[in-house]
Write a protein that binds this DNA or RNA. Structure first.
Lengths: 146, 146
DNA sequence: TTTGATTAGTTGCTTAAACAACTATATGTC
DNA sequence: GACATATAGTTGTTTAAGCAACTAATCAAA
């Protein structure tokens, strides 16, 4: 049996996620300073639509690791902001396909630049090798609990 | 100039914090299965009081990386659950000192056991060395943005 | 082809986060 | 001592998460 079965000391920060909270806050602040009036959560939905426009709400649930009510309401708010549109699927009338508006497409460049800038601020002094290991660990944790 | 100034690829998971969200959800689920009716956020406040009982709300803000209104309301809810008590400081009448009740003291052992168990589930297959590096990276990120 | 189960999405409710605006107390300076 | 400033905590508002309960559409099996 591996050592990992036993107590590993001060792992509390894994649970509270102070670091990712801090990054999210900083990114939100950077959005605000650039007069971008979207939340990080809204941005995270747009992020997946920029990668692939036209996804069902269920696909967005899976992509963003959120439950259905959360996506319903995020899409509600994004629709109010005229950043996405719900388009009922013709094949399957249960499904809403979510599409970006022109406005949302225009947000991509600026916000991704701010996101990269924020990550660089956050990762000052961390080597690429260390970042890779951290990413791997977080991925394994996610997969273990999924 | 270091490489870290440049784009580092798929770092999105750092921002959304999927892994820490997953751990928090799993711990919440494990609490529920053991009929422990507290939230992870409430537990995180208790955690710091178990380390040192009798802290001001401001100290709890610093310890838990939350703002003052958040702590006000968490303490409100913990008081409703009869897990903590606000005691006005005699030296400084602005300050509330927060103390654990007997009930809360009794929660420590069981919940910490569940927390360790949850971390072990999460970290299956991750070596201690990797965990150490991940912790260091998260700490640097936190310090960079603090 | 009808019945039962599954899938997609919505609504209601409680808890919490973030921010601004506020009250009350304490401190420091002239 | 009086006034400005800082500190501790509260309240109001918006956004979001998580869970349960719900509707509507689809699928599958007899």
């Amino acid at each position: 049996m591996s050592n990992n079965q036993f107590k590993r000391g001060e792992l509390y920060s894994f649970i509270t996620g102070k670091a990712s909270t801090a990054i999210a806050r900083r990114l939100q602040k950077n959005f605000k300073q650039s007069s971008l009036d979207i939340t990080i959560e809204q941005w995270s939905v747009l992020y997946h639509l920029w990668k692939k426009d036209g996804q069902s709400q269920q696909q967005l649930c899976d992509a963003t690791f959120r439950d259905k009510p959360s996506i319903t309401r995020l899409v509600d708010n994004l629709e109010k902001l005229k950043l996405v549109k719900r388009v009922p699927s013709k094949n399957d009338r249960r499904i809403n396909m979510i599409y970006l508006t022109k406005e949302a497409v225009n947000l991509q460049e600026k916000t991704m630049e701010l996101a990269n800038q924020t990550l660089n601020e956050a990762l000052q002094g961390v080597s690429n090798g260390q970042v890779e290991i951290a990413k791997e660990v977080l991925q394994v944790v996610y997969d273990n609990l999924k």
